[in-house]
Each structure stands twice: as structure tokens, then as C-alpha cells.
């Protein structure tokens, strides 16, 4: 008889190899899109700004690097949530084996996604700095920390949403729809510094703002962020959402498996 820890480890290992293969070999377009999506966003946003002729500068950071850092970090969070949501449904056949719990594919997908998105970030940084943009992080350790926090926040939200969306299908649709407004409200493509102060106060309830701005502060030495950005506030959300997600998975494990 193996210990529970040994069983869990072998399940994670097997799932990791499976997800990794499926994600990188199965869908060639997915590979392409991982790089193309942030690039397309950058190109469209730059074009929009050029055409509108409203070149409002971001204080202390170059426009394109600022955009790349924000977009990739937001996508890291978004994929964590959306991939988690599909994880239980996609691996339903594997619940025939009592060793596999519904939480396993969710956690493993987040790890796979985190690795892939980190690769994407590195490639984009490399590309942009070859093109002469100032994008190398001025505080690499701080950037790593903020990047990790964004990943964990995506995982926490993913844990919660994966249970909620499996039990109530409509929640999944709402979450999908919420991603675009969230992209804008988190200051990924429009700098929140340009908003009036009394609106900023409300925007600061969104933990993503704190993560993204902390990441940008670590990347760009002279960057002037919003006042009130608090990395600690983000960690409350991370710990809270991961704890809630794991509790939900424990509470509903039987029902998720049996469906």
C-alpha cells in the first residue's frame, strides 16, 4: 500500500505529463496564439493610439514595454481561471480511478499554464529588448515576486471558479464575460493614473490592479504608479481565494466526481 502522499504525487506527475503533452503537441494553434495574442493586442493598441493622435505618455515607463508586461501578467491570471474551469470537465473520464481527485487536474493545469506563460513573457522581453525597448526588469527579484503573485491569484480564483462553474454552469459564462471588463478596469491597456482620484479609490478594490502595478514598479525604475498600491492587499486575496477554493473542493469533491 502506498502512502496518500505518494499516490497524490504520482497522480500529479501523470497529469502533468499528460497536460503538458496535450497542450504543446495537440493544438498547434494554441502555441501560436499564446505568443500572438499579446502581440496582436500591442499592435492594435499602438495603432489606435497613433490614429487617435492622443499620445499620452506614461510617466516613468515606455508605452510598449508597459503594455507587454501588463498584458502577459493579465493573461497569466486569466488563463489560470479559464483553464481551471475546463479542467474538471476535460478530465471527467479519469475520475473513474479513485486516485484522481477533481482538485488534481485544476492544480496541475495551473502549473502547466504558469510555466508556459512564463516562457511567453521571457520570449516577449527578449524580443522587445532586441528591438531596442527598455523592458529588462530593473528589480528582477521584485518582478519575480509579483509575477508569482499573479499566478497564485489566478490559481486561487481558478480553484473557486472550477467548483462553482461545475455545479452551476451559468457561472462559467459570467466569468468568461467578466474577463474583458476586468482587462480594462485593471489598467492593463488604459493607465489608471489618468482616471480621477475618486474613481481610482474604487478601482483599487480590484486585487489585479495591485498585482499589475507592483509588477510594473519592479520592471520600470522611475515608474509613477497610482497612490494606494499595496502588494500586501493582493496577498490577502491570494490566501483567501486559495483557502476558499480548497475548502470548496473538499466540500464538493464527491459531487464533482459523481456528476
Amino acid at each position: 500500500m502506498r502512502t496518500p502522499l505518494a499516490v497524490t504525487w504520482s497522480v500529479w506527475r501523470a497529469l502533468f505529463l499528460r497536460e503538458g503533452t496535450a497542450r504543446t503537441s495537440g493544438d498547434r494553434f494554441a502555441w501560436f496564439w499564446m505568443l500572438a495574442e499579446p502581440l496582436a493586442f500591442v499592435i492594435v493598441m499602438v495603432a489606435v493610439r497613433e490614429m487617435l493622435g492622443r499620445v499620452r505618455l506614461i510617466v516613468g515607463a515606455e508605452w510598449i514595454p508597459w503594455l507587454i508586461v501588463g498584458l502577459t501578467a493579465f493573461f497569466l491570471f486569466r488563463e489560470g481561471v479559464l483553464r481551471s474551469m475546463g479542467a474538471i470537465e476535460a478530465n471527467r473520464a479519469l475520475f473513474a480511478y479513485r486516485q484522481v481527485a477533481p482538485v488534481d487536474p485544476v492544480l496541475v493545469r495551473n502549473v502547466v499554464e504558469g510555466i508556459l506563460k512564463t516562457l511567453v513573457l521571457v520570449i516577449l522581453i527578449f524580443g522587445a529588448s532586441l528591438l531596442g525597448h527598455d523592458i529588462l526588469p530593473s528589480n528582477p527579484l521584485g518582478a519575480l515576486n509579483a509575477w508569482l503573485a499573479m499566478w497564485l491569484l489566478g490559481m486561487g480564483a481558478g480553484l473557486v471558479v472550477s467548483v462553482a462553474a461545475s455545479l452551476v454552469q451559468e457561472i462559467g459564462m459570467v466569468v468568461r464575460m467578466a474577463m474583458l471588463p476586468l482587462l480594462i478596469l485593471s489598467g492593463v491597456i488604459i493607465p489608471l493614473q489618468t482616471f480621477p482620484h475618486h474613481i481610482q479609490q474604487y478601482l483599487l478594490y480590484n486585487p489585479l490592479v495591485h498585482g499589475l502595478e507592483t509588477l510594473r514598479l519592479a520592471f520600470f525604475h522611475n515608474y509613477k504608479s497610482l497612490s494606494g498600491v499595496d502588494f500586501g492587499y493582493l496577498w490577502y486575496w491570494i490566501i483567501g481565494s486559495i483557502a476558499l477554493g480548497l475548502i470548496l473542493h473538499l466540500r464538493f469533491a464527491h459531487r464533482l466526481k459523481a456528476q
Partner: peptide
């Protein structure tokens, strides 16, 4: 997944 991949996966989760 192919039959082979499925077999591999299940062998792995059984340690």
C-alpha cells in the same frame, strides 16, 4: 488521447 497514452497515464497513477 491515444490508447498508448491512456495506458501510460493509468500505469503512472497506479505508481
Amino acid at each position: 488521447m491515444t490508447g498508448r497514452q491512456n495506458v501510460k497515464f493509468i500505469a503512472r497513477i497506479h505508481g
